[in-house]
Design a protein around this nucleic acid. Sequence first.
DNA 1: TCCAAAATGGAGTGTATGCTCAAAATATCG
DNA 2: CGATATTTTGAGCATACACTCCATTTTGGA
Lengths: 183, 183
Amino acid sequence: MARYQTGIRTEAAIVDATRALLADVGVEGTTVKAICDRAEVQAGSFYNVFSSKEQVLIQVAREAIQAVGPDPSLAATETLDELVGAYISFVVDKSPLARVYLQVGASSTTDSSVARRYLRHHVQRAGRFADAMRRADPHLTVEDAAVEAEVLLGALDGLAFRWLLDDMFEFAKHARIAAERYG
Amino acid sequence: MARYQTGIRTEAAIVDATRALLADVGVEGTTVKAICDRAEVQAGSFYNVFSSKEQVLIQVAREAIQAVGPDPSLAATETLDELVGAYISFVVDKSPLARVYLQVGASSTTDSSVARRYLRHHVQRAGRFADAMRRADPHLTVEDAAVEAEVLLGALDGLAFRWLLDDMFEFAKHARIAAERYG
DNA sequence: TCCAAAATGGAGTGTATGCTCAAAATATCG
DNA sequence: CGATATTTTGAGCATACACTCCATTTTGGA
């Protein structure tokens, strides 16, 4: 089962191609053939590495969901500003991954396994926002902080979707204002 | 060219089936066969009414985009509360259409014709929000109102996406809290 | 250098999809 | 009712899709 270097490079090329395609043309246009063409690989090689198309899609989606949150080890002390800043830099600096993140979230039907994973991750993230809010204002109740966190995260997600429709939209500027209003 | 009643009923059945399918299983699962099965119609009838699958999809998407905004004739006097209330009742009372609206917005690639229509409509809607904000607070500059409107609309859209992932999410409650900051 | 394991190329398979067509059925109206 | 326009049927077509197979080539440790 010891893998060769060439196989590992091929796997990386396939994942890269899949991520780029998802960002460029969405789930609809991301076919196995398109992935293989972009990765400069034949179908046989694809299925030597991945057992199905769904596996790559899941891997890229997982990667995107992971990347949206800042380092979990900081969770106990991070400020709201840092959390918002992390989201902004996710969108600005890793836009392909951000596009995948948003498309996956929206295209998943309510009860798919991807939707559940997505939701679970969202709830964790909302918890980190709520914690940061309570550190800034200890008078805030747990329940109120939870609601405020959902509203702020909703605003950030919504503004990111807005950016998805229009590259020119100034996401960072609006996100910071949202953080001021809902912080 | 005068159409028969049966044909008109068939068209309505196809549109209804398409809307329901988009809400239930997303764009991916909405095939011509699935639409025909649900509408209890054969493929030939489908293509007697619509020239392609894309045409129904566009028609339903257009219907959803139209339905999200309240009556345009009120635009000159409506309040922010009324605009927010209209969005809430759109999501709560017309959830299939709301699901379609959100999925279409997210799944459209940046440069498709659907994305352009969607964006154009969003900009109009943001304009109505901004106008209502300036009526409530005449000191607000046009530029500031535009930014504030984008932030509020972003929050509402983001919260609607949250609801898309999880039926149990209390959209109305969170939406009203998001709007309070601008009361 | 040799060799077994791993990776690759690429033709090929089955299936689902969007769509067509001509004949048959049905609606509308004088 | 008869004539004409519209709609329906359902088999069937071409294509694109995800995926398989296996002979061939490449890899990397002994």
